[in-house]
Simulated assay, not measured.
Amino acid sequence: MQMELLSTSALAKKLEILPKQLFEHLATIGYIQRQDTDWILTTAGKDAGGSYKTFGSYGKKVVWPADINFYEDDDEQKESQGLLNATKIGESFGVSSRKINALISELGWMKKEGSCWKLTKQGTRKGAKQFVKSGNHYVKWPESILTEKLLIESLNSLSSTKIDEQSATKISDFRQQLQAKLRTTDGHFVRSKAEMLIDNWLYMAEIPHAYERKLPIEEEVYSDFYIPTGKVYIEYWGYENNEKYLARKAEKLEIYKKYDFNLIELNDKDVENMDDILPVLLLKYGVKSY
């Protein structure tokens, strides 16, 4: 069902106030501004739900969702003071708000549910706050996000800009010792036969995946596999008789728990029965394999 849209004057009538009062209020809170003799939407106004509609001979006018009430936003305005939306963040980096939202979601700081953006525990740790307006959920971020290392690295990787070399070259002793020499069907080079079987299974199941992806955290930790759909990580534990390996395994599990990442754990027995096991585990995170 399409949402009813009202002109600013019609909305003022519904709110039982004079149109002049509503226009002045919207200008004060930064949702509209004068351009010659017309009122035009600002970026904030568009984010709030404003759009344009042509009314015959009256021409193009600003319209709003019929259920919106701008006078309920006073507390929110105070709470969001000093916080940035995706549009403002994007302007600082010279990219679109859509790309910023996608990158922040990829980092696990918020997630998309329908048309809404929902804050995660990781995002809350970054100082972000959740807001709701006219049924639309969105997130605003502290100015510190403009210097957030992980976000900058993600932006740099998209623009082929060289990121901090020291961070990019740090790897664990285990990864140094065991080179990735086995080539999978989709061209990845992996470090064990089990990893090759897992990679090939994901490829044949037409599930996009990355091999040895760095977790989006400050700690230098790499997952065995990452599946963007469902934002789920896969770890294969294959050296259960190695004390050093088991200690590292325990550390990694603590990190997955700390950041509340979606994790699937596989051992040798699971790899032997992937057709039965992996589809069920993936489905828990909304990833369909068949």
Rank of each mutant, 00 (worst) to 15 (best):
S97R: 07
R98G: 01
K99W: 01
K99F: 05
I100D: 02
I100H: 01
N101G: 00
A102C: 00
A102D: 10
L103R: 01
L103K: 03
I104W: 01
S105C: 12
S105L: 00
E106T: 11
G108V: 05
G108Y: 05
W109M: 11
W109I: 03
W109E: 05
K111E: 13
S115C: 02
C116M: 01
W117R: 10
K118R: 14
L119N: 10
K121W: 05
T124I: 11
T124K: 15
T124L: 12
R125Q: 15
R125K: 15
K126V: 04
G127Q: 11
G127H: 11
A128G: 10
K129L: 15
K129P: 03
Q130Y: 08
Q130H: 07
F131P: 03
F131M: 12
K133S: 14
K133C: 08
K133R: 15
S134D: 13
S134I: 04
G135S: 12
N136Q: 14
H137Q: 12
H137P: 03
Y138V: 08
V139Y: 11
K140L: 14
W141Q: 08
W141D: 05
P142Y: 08
P142H: 07
P142S: 08
S144I: 04
I145Q: 03
I145F: 06
L146R: 07
L146N: 10
L146F: 08
T147W: 03
L150H: 07
L151R: 05
I152A: 05
I152G: 09
E153A: 13
E153D: 13
L158N: 09
L158R: 09
L158K: 06
S160Q: 10
S160K: 13
S160W: 06
T161L: 11
T161S: 03
K162N: 06
K162V: 11
I163C: 08
I163H: 03
Q166N: 12
Q166S: 10
Q166W: 05
S167T: 10
S167N: 09
A168D: 12
A168C: 01
A168S: 13
K170M: 09
I171D: 01
S172H: 13
D173A: 10
D173S: 08
D173P: 10
F174G: 04
R175P: 01
R175M: 05
Q176A: 09
Q176S: 10
Q176C: 02
Q177K: 15
L178P: 00
L178M: 08
L178V: 15
Q179A: 13
K181E: 10
K181W: 01
K181Y: 03
L182E: 01
L182R: 07
R183T: 14
R183S: 06
D186S: 15
H188M: 01
F189H: 12
V190C: 04
R191F: 04
R191V: 02
S192F: 04
S192Q: 04
K193H: 09
K193I: 06
K193C: 00
A194L: 01
A194S: 15
E195W: 00
L197W: 00
I198L: 02
D199T: 00
D199H: 00
N200A: 02
W201T: 03
M204T: 07
A205R: 15
A205T: 01
E206V: 02
I207W: 05
I207V: 15
A210T: 03
Y211S: 04
E212H: 08
R213D: 08
R213N: 07
R213C: 07
R213T: 05
K214N: 07
K214C: 04
L215Y: 12
